[in-house]
Structure formats: structure tokens, C-alpha cells
């Protein structure tokens, strides 16, 4: 479960990115966060992984009070949360396989384990044959799938995706959505910030709309009401 309790974030330069956010994301939910540019979507995601700390309020990830988490524990939090971004963030000098394996190397898994799990995850995202290619040799859609593979290779219960389809054509975007949906069906909580109205309207998931840092609409609350 991810839980925002009256969270406000003001950046050092005085910009207030999000205001008074109360938001509970139960386990296994698929949540869209939508809103215009500058609304505060990325800020919300950054607050979850402690990339940013709230100015007011608290953020919980499971039992962890993220706001109070000591710096040395932050890596442990991040191992519970896979992250995917619009710009893929792949390492250009590593192959597809190495880009994914990387996330397991840094947590000290054995080479045998790494090989097994990485192959399994590459299979899941449909990139088994591209395993030895470098990022500049694959398409944007494939690159984003590599990024997803890296995000889930540690088997985290949460996946955060910040505009994962932003740089992709419609077909690739839908392939990405299919993978995220599959992950969600397998039990992962997925939070995705997006501009893509097409996708949000087609898929039947909870949608939180924010504007000027405030939640202006929450489709789940509406259906409950």
C-alpha cells in the first residue's frame, strides 16, 4: 500500500508542486495519474521513492514512513519499487542483458541467479532474441521494454511509470501497456503518470487527475460515491 497523508511539496526555489495530497493506493491496484504539464505528477512519484522529501505531511510505502526513512535505508525502499521513465535511462555501453542484470548485480546476487532471473524477465517482456544488442540497436518500444525488465527484475511489489509511452508510437505504447497490465495481473501495484488520453480512456483503471498540485478528480471515489 502507498499512502499520501496531507502531503505538500515546495521546491527550494519556492515552487509549490503539490498541495495537500491525500491519496491511498491499495496493493495490486493499477492507478493512472493524469494532469497538464507542471501539475505535479512527477513530483508525486519522486516523493514515493524518496527522490524528494515532502515539505509537509507523510508518505507511507507499506509500513515504511518514507519521510522518516534514514538515508542508508533508502536503497532498501527503492528495491521494493521499480521505476520506468519516458527517456528509458538505459546504459548505452551495456547490452540489453547487461542493462537488466545490472539491477541484480548491485544487490549482490550470484552470477547464476542473475542469468536465470534476467533471462526469465527478458522472456516476459519479449526481448529474448535482443539480449545481446546495445540500446542504440533497438527501437524505442524495445528500449522501454528493457527498462521495464530492469524495473521488475528485483521482483518489486510496486512499479512506478512516469510517462512510459511519452516517446513511443501508438503501437509500441500499447505493447508497453500490455506488459504493465500483465505485471498488474501478476500482483504488482502499478502507478503510471501519463498524458496519453487514449490509453487512459481505453483501460478500465482508477484515474487521479491533478491540476496545480491538487487532486481535482479521483475516478474511484466517484464510482464509490
Amino acid at each position: 500500500m502507498i499512502n499520501f497523508q496531507q502531503v505538500t511539496k515546495r521546491y527550494a526555489n519556492g515552487t509549490t508542486a503539490v498541495v495537500d495530497i491525500d491519496l491511498e493506493v491499495p496493493d495490486r491496484q493499477f492507478l493512472f495519474i493524469v494532469g497538464p504539464s507542471g501539475a505535479g505528477k512527477s513530483t508525486l512519484l519522486k516523493l514515493i521513492i524518496r527522490e524528494e522529501v515532502p515539505s509537509e505531511g507523510k508518505v507511507f510505502v507499506d509500513k515504511w514512513d518514507v519521510t522518516k526513512l534514514p538515508g542508508r535505508k533508502v536503497p532498501h525502499l527503492r528495491r521494493q519499487i521499480g521505476t520506468v521513465f519516458q527517456d528509458f535511462k538505459l546504459l548505452p555501453k551495456k547490452t540489453v542483458f547487461e542493462n537488466v542484470a545490472f539491477a541484480l548485480e548491485i544487490i549482490g546476487r550470484t552470477s547464476k541467479e542473475i542469468k536465470e532471473v534476467t533471462e526469465e524477465v527478458l522472456e516476459l517482456v519479449g526481448l529474448k532474441d535482443q539480449r545481446n544488442l546495445f540500446p542504440n540497436q533497438i527501437s524505442g518500444g524495445e528500449a522501454q521494454r528493457v527498462a521495464i525488465a530492469r524495473a521488475i527484475v528485483q521482483k518489486p511489489p510496486f512499479v512506478l511509470a512516469d510517462e512510459p509511452t511519452g516517446n513511443l508510437d501508438a503501437k509500441s505504447a500499447w505493447e508497453i501497456m500490455a506488459i504493465l497490465q500483465k505485471l498488474n495481473e501478476l500482483g504488482t501495484t502499478v502507478i503510471m503518470a501519463t498524458h496519453n488520453i487514449d490509453i487512459v480512456q481505453t483501460l478500465p483503471h482508477r484515474m487521479v487527475e491533478i491540476e496545480h498540485g491538487r487532486i481535482i478528480k479521483d475516478s474511484e471515489l466517484k464510482t464509490k460515491n
Binding site: R72, L77, K89, L91, I106, A151, Q154
Partner: peptide, 16 residues
């Protein structure tokens, strides 16, 4: 820089 950013995202410890 980029590699370090990714390492942090995937949960590498500060000492690593």
C-alpha cells in the same frame, strides 16, 4: 552521472 542515477534508482547502496 547517468549510471550513478540509475544505480540509485535500482537501489544500489551508497557504498556500492
Amino acid at each position: 552521472k547517468d549510471e550513478i542515477e540509475i544505480m540509485r534508482l535500482v537501489g544500489a547502496s551508497s557504498s556500492y
